[in-house]
Write a protein that binds this DNA or RNA. Structure first.
Lengths: 126, 126
DNA sequence: TTTAGTGTCATAATACACTATGACACTAAA
DNA sequence: TTTAGTGTCATAGTGTATTATGACACTAAA
């Protein structure tokens, strides 16, 4: 996997795993790859993956059965969703608006976003 | 100044200075605070500010007159603007759209953004 | 019981951001 | 010339992310 220099690797692996869960590639109760297994796949040290799994366990996203492996917790997706939604609305969105103002972007620049937003929000909600 | 743990300090100082320039708090030709001065103000080491100024010099945003100080380059704001706009449209926006999809945000969630975007983009453009 | 696969822990080594500090060259003004 | 303020560079120390590796406890299945 390719990592961004500006963010800790163990956090980027956590991001990746959370996204897999949100995309239902891992269901509640599923075993996730073993520490050694994922380390090899990501071309990263065991300890780094261990650190990722530890923090996800602390956050109630993974459960741990010693000698067997780590498992996706029951309400993992819900917790990830809540955590990310809160961070998104309270931190990222305000920064986005601020940046758009500062960059004085034109309507044309923003069209792709606005369209994408409409598409994704029109379907489910009333 | 308060720093975010997840991004290098010298980059956060660069971000701050670029924002000052974009907000016209520093005009082209203006001298920016000396390395020692800004270091004290930011409660940071001289070398850290030196590193910030060095990269901004490499990017053509600051000019350097040895023994005198660092100065805002002529087209500094333009360069910052171009750099940030490109990064925004090519990296941040796609990630944003992806996240909105993943989080399945409702219209109500997005209202604040959309309104803010309309306000800022309606004025200047045709 | 043995074996292979789990997680867990400890240690040492490397890399890098940041700090602390001193010394030096350059510039402008007293 | 002297002085004070610039940038510049070198050195050493600290903290932490990451790697590398070995050893050990636990579990399930052969």
């Amino acid at each position: 996997m390719e990592f961004n220099e500006s963010r800790n690797i163990f956090l980027q692996i956590a991001d990746w795993l959370c996204e897999q869960i949100l995309q239902k590639k891992f269901a509640p109760g599923d075993r996730v790859p073993s520490v050694r297994e994922l380390a090899e796949e990501m071309e990263v040290n065991r300890n780094t993956v261990m650190r990722t799994y530890s923090i996800l366990q602390d956050q109630g996203i993974l459960d741990n059965k010693r000698g067997i492996g780590f498992f996706v917790a029951e309400k993992a997706a819900l917790k990830i969703h809540q955590r990310q939604k809160e961070a998104f609305l309270q931190q990222e969105l305000p920064q986005l608006v601020h940046k758009v103002k500062l960059l004085q972007l034109s309507k044309d620049d923003l069209k792709p976003i606005l369209n994408a937003l409409k598409e994704t929000t029109n379907e489910d909600q009333q």
